[in-house]
Structures are given as structure tokens and as C-alpha cells.
């Protein structure tokens, strides 16, 4: 913490600490929901609130039953002995397991689609020769801006006419289109600082367009591509409105399952899933930060 200069007056002194405490409270507001979820997911009671035992740190008030429930929920024989058959049962019939599988499958497919298309488009858009650059860019970014409910309703209406609703392909297309703006924004950001003379240097040394792209451009924009891909993945992973409109029960994703969990049968299993998702987002955040540092190092920008 920076030391206050010696000429600080008493009023400023007080204000300094008042201001710091206000900021502390705002940070608490930001982080509190995430912190509250963690202990509650270990609640032995089927409630969303802290019990007396939990506050007294009574070990019997904590349990892993809601984590087990993630596996057991929807199984044909949840109480069977733990063996391969049990695992196969949960893999095939577990409601949450199915949702997790769907989320990853849809998320990965959508990410690949949007990253591939988005990266190409961002490279094209960053060229000054691109006609109607601004207009095209604003159309391609618009999926991020148009209210999700309108997007979802439009897709529901149109996709059901072309038999895409209630299919995996429909959901993947919807998620891919919602993820592309993030890819475009992040890749464009890495291309802004891109030195064009590098391409010319490589060409003058005899490299073809493909070699230049692979050996010179790609390594420099790859951090942007990966972080765009991560954004696209988390967008798909977190998306529920399009799934609500487009998916059949077969394509239920984690957020969709949580949605019906909150609306219909509120149980701490949701909190257990939420905890796992928080851990996932911590991992993603770490990866993103490492990428950012690598990108800065590659460009020679040292973080002071």
C-alpha cells in the first residue's frame, strides 16, 4: 500500500481510509455471492441457508451429499454398489452428467466453429483494403448487442421452419454465432499492434502467403485466438436463453438444468454444481492471465 505523503492533512487522512473502506465494501459486494455459494454447497440439510451447526463448524452439519447427487440424480439404480455398471449408469442416465456432457460437446463444437470463422474474418477486417469495413464489423459484432431474447425468439421461429430446432446442430449454430463477436474483438485487438513490415520481410525472404501466415502471423495472434476461443466457450457454456428456446430435453445443458432446478425443485445440488463452475471459471481466468502475459512478452511490452 502506498504511503501517504507527509503533507497530508487530517481531513485527507480520514478520507483516504473512508475511501478505502468504501472500495472494500464494493469488492465484498462483487465477491460475496461466489464466496457464499461454496460453504452452502456442503450443507447437510436441503436448504439454501446456513444452519446453526454450520455456523458452529460442527462437522456433522457438512456433507458431500449434494456432490453425490450430481452423479446420482436420474440414475436407474443409484443405490447399487459402486462398480463399472454404476459408472455406466450415471454416465448414461445421470441428469446432471448428461447436462455436463451436452455442455462440453456443444461448447467445444461452437467454439471451434466460431474461432475458425471469427479469426479469418478478423484478419480480413483488419486489412485496410476491406470495403465497408465499419458496417460489416458492426453487423458481425451485433450478436453480442441484440438482446438475447430477440435472438432466441428469432432463431426459434426460423429454425423450427428449417427443422433445426431441437437438434444439436441448431444449438451449436446459435452458440457459435453468439461467440463470434468475442473472437473478432480479441483477435482484432492483437492485430492492431501487428507490425505489417514483418509480413513484407517474410515475403521478401521468399516465403509464400501460407508460410508467412503460419510462421509469422499465427504465432503472434495465437494468444488472441485462444482467449477469443475461451470467451466463445464460456459464452456457450453459460448461455441459457437460446437453449431454452431451441433445445429439447435431450440437449439440456448445465445452465438449462440449473434454470429448471431453480424454477421447479430448488435443491443444494445447484449450489454444488455452481461451486464446480466457479472452480472452472478460476481455471479459465488463470489460463487467460497466463496468455496475456505471454502475449505481452512476445511483443516486448514489459509489465512495469
Amino acid at each position: 500500500m502506498a504511503k501517504l505523503p507527509p503533507y497530508t492533512s487530517t481531513g485527507e487522512y480520514i478520507w483516504h481510509y473512508v475511501y478505502r473502506s468504501i472500495c472494500g465494501l464494493i469488492f465484498l459486494f462483487l465477491i460475496m455471492p461466489i464466496i457464499v455459494v461454496l460453504p452452502l454447497s456442503f450443507n447437510v440439510e436441503p436448504y439454501f441457508s446456513f444452519t446453526k451447526g454450520m455456523l458452529n463448524f460442527d462437522p456433522t452439519a457438512y456433507s458431500l451429499r449434494w456432490y453425490e447427487d450430481i452423479l446420482r440424480n436420474g440414475m436407474k439404480a443409484p443405490d447399487a454398489p459402486f462398480d463399472w455398471a454404476w459408472l455406466a449408469d450415471t454416465w448414461n442416465n445421470g441428469q446432471w452428467i448428461r447436462a455436463i456432457r451436452n455442455s462440453f460437446f456443444i461448447g467445444i463444437c461452437a467454439t471451434l466453429l466460431s474461432t475458425a470463422l471469427g479469426t479469418l474474418a478478423a484478419i480480413g477486417l483488419s486489412r485496410s483494403e476491406m470495403p465497408y469495413r465499419r458496417l460489416v464489423m458492426s453487423i458481425l459484432i451485433s450478436p453480442m448487442i441484440v438482446p438475447l431474447i430477440i435472438t432466441a425468439a428469432g432463431m426459434f421461429y426460423f429454425y423450427s421452419q428449417v427443422h433445426l430446432s431441437q437438434t444439436y446442430l441448431g444449438v451449436i449454430m446459435a452458440h457459435a454465432v453468439l461467440g463470434t463477436p468475442f473472437v473478432i474483438i480479441t483477435v482484432t485487438a492483437t492485430l492492431v499492434g501487428f507490425d505489417k513490415s514483418l509480413v513484407r520481410a517474410s515475403q521478401s525472404l521468399g516465403a509464400g502467403a501460407v508460410t508467412t501466415f503460419r510462421k509469422v502471423q499465427m504465432p503472434l495472434i495465437i494468444p488472441g485466438v485462444i482467449s477469443g476461443g475461451l470467451f466463445a466457450f464460456i459464452t456457450s457454456f453459460d448461455e441459457v436463453v437460446a437453449v431454452l428456446f431451441l433445445a429439447s430435453p435431450e440437449q439440456r445443458t448445465i445452465p438449462r438444468q440449473m434454470w429448471s432446478g431453480i424454477r421447479e425443485q430448488i435443491s443444494p445440488t445447484i449450489l454444488a454444481v455452481a461451486t464446480l463452475l466457479v472452480i472452472l471459471s478460476i481455471i479459465l481466468l488463470t489460463v487467460l492471465e497466463l496468455l496475456r502475459r505471454r502475449s505481452e512478452r512476445l511483443r516486448g511490452i514489459t509489465s512495469s
Binding site: L120, L125, M130, P131, V136, I139, L140, P143, G154
Partner: peptide
């Protein structure tokens, strides 16, 4: 430049803009 943008543009049109216009 245009041919790099066209695939995504077509995709966004088909899966996003046209559905909304249809609605």
C-alpha cells in the same frame, strides 16, 4: 480481404440476421 470475411458474414446472416428479420 473480402473472401476472408465472407464465410463468417454468410454464417451470421443465415443463423442470426435472417431469423431475426423473419421474426
Amino acid at each position: 480481404a473480402v473472401s476472408l470475411v465472407v464465410p463468417l458474414f454468410a454464417f451470421v446472416m443465415a443463423s442470426f440476421v435472417i431469423p431475426i428479420l423473419a421474426l
